[in-house]
Amino acid sequence: MTDLLRVEHVERHFGGLRALNGVDLAVATRERLAVIGPNGAGKTTLFNVIAGELSPTSGRVLLGGEDVTRRRPDQRAVRGLGRTFQKNNLFLGLSVFENVRLAVQRRHGVSWNAFSPAASHRTVMAETTEQLDTVRLRDRAGATVRELSYGEQRQLEVAVALACRPRLLLLDEPTAGMSPAETVGMIDLVKGLPPDLTLLIIEHDMDVVFALADRIVVLHHGEVLAEGRPEEVRKNPRVMAVYLGTDVTASGLVGADGVKLADCHSLADLVGGPPIEGERGALGP
């Protein structure tokens, strides 16, 4: 069976910075893969290269066996790639309904119709409502994005991506900034996604990672530090070193690698280490 996604020797430099430094990755159809790593590890850059927002300095990206390295983001989206953004990237002045409807109408191939009102396309309208139901935003259909709470905007971010019915879905920290209740809702939503959907998720919250992922890839300084099943990664000494390096505890706030303590809080759960002294006092809610 061919992999749905292959990333081959991808490098991406920003000036002198090697944000991605030779990443190889293969993702099989139906797999649920979590990409984790400290801040600045290159996770979002990797997503941007996979989705086509950034072109790699070198290396290739293959989607369903096809080399899409030179394809634009929209061409990759049409081939079944959907993504959400770490920083909300919505149609701010438009309603919740319209945000999702734009994705649905594209998939139905009616976006070039200039002669009939958008509201007259019954299947598009019905599917939009359905999609809003799945993320529990149906009541908010008429609100503009600006009127939504942050958590609701995160939900809409996922809804817009799902409305494209992708084969491969990239979620960039979908629960970041969400309340615990909203986070649980998001986990349920992702668990309930069709089984033939292939998922890559960047997440700092380890509860979410363990709830959703079959496999974990750890990025560090633009390189794959470790990968494997969650239990394996949890025990990996190199991962433990990165997340619970002595510098972190010593300096109290920032580790040698620029790892912020805020992330270590959740990542400490990953390696099963004890809570870091003074951590909650310093940064807790």
Partner: peptide, 19 residues
Amino acid sequence: SPLGHSFIGVRENESRMQA
């Protein structure tokens, strides 16, 4: 129409339209 809404989508957020 759907095309008109596509115009508005481009006005609001080009990068998301591409995505």
